[in-house]
Simulated assay, not measured.
Amino acid sequence: MMQKPSSLSARYRLVLTIGLFMLLPIMSEAQCAMCRAVLESEGNTSVAEGINNGIVYLMAIPYILIGALFFFIYRKLKS
């Protein structure tokens, strides 16, 4: 007979999933460092700074959007 998964295992899966998503920026940081090293070795540092700023903006926007979504859901459930 199949048992319904307990809330503890569902909570464990949620924590594991969030942990993996938190590690993704750390794993992708190595690629950003490689791009920066290549761009800075060319001598034109303004292009390297622009590329690095673009990477930061692309990484930050999804976190801001998801944070705003959770804030509005929390506020809706609170009232």
Rank of each mutant, 00 (worst) to 15 (best):
A30K: 09
I26K: 02
G67Y: 14
V47N: 02
L20H: 04
V56K: 12
G50K: 13
R75N: 01
I66M: 06
A60C: 08
C32T: 12
I55Y: 05
L16H: 09
L58T: 12
A10I: 15
G54W: 12
S9H: 05
L58F: 13
F71T: 06
A33N: 04
Y12G: 03
E49P: 00
E49W: 11
A30T: 10
M34F: 09
A48R: 02
T17F: 11
A37I: 08
Q31Y: 10
E29K: 07
I55A: 03
T45M: 11
E29W: 15
L16P: 00
E40L: 11
S79E: 02
N44L: 13
I66A: 09
F72P: 00
I61E: 01
A68M: 14
A68F: 15
I18Q: 06
K76V: 00
E42I: 14
Q31G: 01
E42D: 07
L69M: 05
A60M: 15
S6Q: 01
K4G: 04
A37H: 02
G50A: 10
L58R: 10
A48E: 00
M59S: 09
C35W: 11
A33H: 04
P25A: 05
S6C: 02
N44V: 15
I26V: 13
V47Y: 06
G54C: 02
F71Q: 01
L8F: 11
L23E: 01
Q3L: 14
R36I: 07
V56Y: 10
L77S: 00
L77A: 04
Y74V: 07
V15D: 11
E42N: 06
E49K: 15
V38Q: 03
V56Q: 05
I64A: 11
M1G: 15
I51P: 00
S28K: 04
F70P: 04
P5A: 02
Q31W: 07
F70E: 03
I73K: 03
V15S: 04
T17N: 07
L58S: 06
T45L: 14
C32Y: 03
A30S: 05
G43K: 06
P5V: 13
L24W: 07
G43T: 12
P5W: 10
G54A: 05
A60F: 12
I61T: 08
V47T: 09
V15P: 00
L58K: 01
S46A: 12
L65A: 08
I51G: 00
I18R: 06
